[in-house]
Nucleic acid binder design. Structure first.
Lengths: 333, 333
DNA sequence: CACCAAAATGTCAGCGCTGTCATCTTATAG
DNA sequence: CTATAAGATGACAGCGCTGACATTTTGGTG
C-alpha cells in the first residue's frame, strides 16, 4: 500500500480511501490512485484490514439441506457476490434438529468473527437461532423463508407463478384430473406451489378436488406413497404434479410398480430441476429454480448491510422456468 | 489474550505459546493457562494471528467436478479437518478447461493468501497449475490423482479392490458374462476400476472378453450408448458393471428402452453411491466411496505441512464398500 | 553451593491497515 | 478580495498477535 501511495504521490490513507470506495476523494485523485493499484496489481491485506477495521470481511452461509445440488448452486451464487466485493465466504453445514446447533454456531462465530450470515430453509424458521443473531447484532439475510412479509431482509422466488405455469403446461396437454403432492409444511415453497396449482385450475375453470391433493414431505419415499394413494383412486389422475423432483422420482417408481406407463398413461411433473431429473427414465419435466441467482442476491443484500459505502444493487426479481422433458405428454384418449 | 495472561499470571507471549501448541512451555504452566482459556472461552483473533505471523490460516479447496454430491462430501471432510485445527476453508469451484484458470487463481491467492491448497481431479493433472504452485512455494495435497507414485503428498482410495469386490458380488450371483463400461481415461479411478474388474474375472477363472468392455466418459449419455452396444451383442452380458453411477443410470435407461428387465434379465452395478443411486427404479447396487474421509485426510495432510508444531496424524487407509440394492440379482436360468 | 547450559518466560517492536483528528485546499458568499 | 465552510488529504496511534531476542529460572554438575 505504501508503494502505491508513493507512486501516486499521496498518503497511504488516501489509498485506503480509494480501496474502500470512500467518498471525499477527488475524482482525479481516485483515478490516479486506481491506476497505480491496477498497475501494481495491489491487493490489500485482508488480515490487516480486518484487524484495523475490526470486521472480518467474512460472511457465513448456513444450511441444513439434504440436497447437495441445492447447496452447490447456493454456494456458487453467494461466492459470486462475495468475490466481486472483497468478501470471504465461510460455509457451515449444520443440523437444524441438533440441540448443540447454537453452541456450535457460537463457537464458529467466535472463531471466524463473521460480519453477517445468510440462512436457508429450514434454518430460516429457527427462532432460537434468529433471536441469537438479533441479540448479538449479527446482520443476516434469509433465503426463501416461510413468512415473506417480515421486516428482515430476505430474498425468494415466486414459486406460485412457476407452479401455475407448469400446471398450465399439463392442462395444455388436455389433462383435467391433475394430482398434487404437497411438500413439507414448514417450507415456504410448499404453500406457494400449492397456491399456484389452485390458481391454474381456477383460471381454466377446472373444479378443485381435494381427493387429488396428497401430503408429502419432499422425500422420495413420501412421493411414492402419495402416488400410490392417488393412482388407486376410483378416478385416478392423468397427471401428477409433485412439489419437488425427489417426490416426482417416487411417483415414477410407483407408476412402474403399478405398470402405468409415463408419460403415455400418466404425466409427471416435478419442481426444482435437480440433477436426478435428467437421469430418470423418462426424463422429468420440472421447474428450474434459479437458486444461484437467488443466493447471489442474498449475498449482495448482506454486503449492502455490512458495507459502510456500499454500491447500490438492483436486486431484480428472479424467475423460475418450466423445463419440459419426457415425463409429460398429451392425455390418453 | 491479555485477560488470560493476567488471570494466569503469565505474559501474553506465554498464552500465545499455549494457543499455538509450541514446545518449551512447562506442563503445569500450559495446563494453568489452558484452564483460563477454557474458562474465559478465549478465541484468538484470527486476523491478528495472520497479520503477525504472516500466514492466513486458510486453505483452499479447488475443484472442477460436475457432481455436487461429490463436492459436498469433499467439503464436509475438509471442513472437519479445518475446524479441528483452527483453519479456515476457501472453496473455489473452477473450470479446468478455462484458459483464465491460472489468472483467476492468482487473483484468488493474492486476495485470500491461502497457506495451501487441496486439488481434486481433474485439476490434479493440470501441469500448468501444479507448476505454478510449485514455483510459488504454495504447499498442496492431491486427492486421487492419476499417478499415485509421485512424491507429492496425496490421498486416494483403492478403487481396484472395491471394483473387484463388486464384480465378485455379480459373480456370486452366477454371472459369467459381465459387461464393463470404462470411465474417462484421464481420471485415476477409471484405470483402477477396470483393473479390479479384470482381477475379479481372473480370480474366478472367467476368460476376459474384450467385446464386453466399452468406453464411456462418466456421463449418463455415454452409459446409455455403451449399454446399447453391449446389449445388442450376439451374446449379450447378463450383468453390466459401470464405472460410475451416472453411467449405470444410462444403462438402466437403455435397458428400459430395449425392454430388458433389471435385475431379472440384467444386473446393473454402479460406482460412487451418488444420491441418484437411491432414486432410480430399481435402486442401484453400487460402491460407496468414502470421499468425505478421503478429503478429511487430505486436509490433515496439508495442515501437517503448514503447521510448525503439527500433531502427528495417522492417515489410515480408507476403504470403499459395496452397497447391495435392487439392481443386481441372480443370473436368469 | 557455586556454576553452567538448557529450558522457560518475558519484553517489545511491528505486521498492514484504518479511525480519529488535524491540516490544508477549494469553492462560494459577501 | 477576504471570510468561511465544506471538501480533500495527511499524520499517527493502535488493532491483537507473534518473531526475535533478552532475561530469568531450573536442574544437573563438580
Amino acid at each position: 500500500m505504501q508503494d502505491v501511495a508513493d507512486l501516486a504521490g499521496v498518503s497511504s490513507k488516501t489509498v485506503s480511501r480509494v480501496v474502500n470506495n470512500e467518498p471525499k476523494v477527488r475524482n482525479d485523485t481516485r483515478e490516479k490512485v486506481q491506476k497505480i493499484i491496477n498497475e501494481l496489481n495491489f491487493q490489500p491485506n485482508k488480515s490487516a484490514q480486518s484487524l484495523a477495521a475490526d470486521r472480518s470481511l467474512l460472511m457465513g452461509l448456513l444450511y441444513d439441506n439434504p440436497s447437495s445440488a441445492y447447496i452447490t448452486q447456493l454456494q456458487a451464487g453467494v461466492l459470486a457476490a462475495c468475490n466481486s466485493h472483497g468478501y470471504g465466504l465461510v460455509i457451515h453445514p449444520c443440523d437444524n434438529e441438533d440441540d448443540a446447533l447454537l453452541s456450535n454456531l457460537q463457537l464458529l462465530l467466535a472463531s471466524s468473527r463473521m460480519d453477517g450470515v445468510i440462512l436457508t430453509p429450514p434454518l430460516t424458521e429457527n427462532k432460537v437461532l434468529l433471536d441469537y443473531l438479533d441479540v448479538n447484532n449479527i446482520p443476516f439475510v434469509l433465503i426463501s423463508p416461510l413468512d415473506q412479509e417480515q421486516s428482515t431482509p430476505l430474498v425468494y422466488t415466486d414459486d406460485t407463478l412457476a407452479a401455475k405455469q407448469s400446471v398450465q403446461h399439463l392442462i395444455d396437454f388436455g389433462h383435467k384430473r391433475i394430482g398434487f403432492i404437497l411438500g413439507a409444511r414448514q417450507r415456504s415453497g410448499s404453500e406457494m406451489r400449492f397456491l399456484g396449482y389452485k390458481k391454474a385450475l381456477e383460471e381454466n375453470q377446472i373444479a378443485f378436488d381435494s381427493a387429488l391433493v396428497v401430503e408429502g414431505d419432499f422425500t422420495f419415499e413420501s412421493g411414492e406413497l402419495a402416488a400410490q394413494q392417488l393412482l388407486r383412486l376410483d378416478q385416478p389422475p392423468t397427471a401428477i404434479f409433485a412439489s419437488n423432483d425427489y417426490m416426482a422420482a417416487g411417483v415414477m417408481k410407483a407408476a412402474i410398480h403399478l405398470r402405468i406407463s409415463v408419460p403415455y398413461e400418466l404425466s409427471v411433473c416435478g419442481f426444482d430441476d435437480l440433477p436426478v431429473a435428467r437421469y430418470l427414465t423418462p426424463t422429468l419435466t420440472t421447474v428450474q429454480h434459479p437458486v444461484s441467482l437467488l443466493a447471489e442476491n442474498a449475498g449482495k443484500l448482506l454486503i449492502k448491510q455490512l458495507k459502510k459505502y456500499a454500491d447500490a444493487f438492483e436486486l431484480n426479481e428472479v424467475h423460475a422456468e418450466v423445463i419440459v422433458r419426457e415425463s409429460t405428454g398429451p392425455v390418453k384418449v
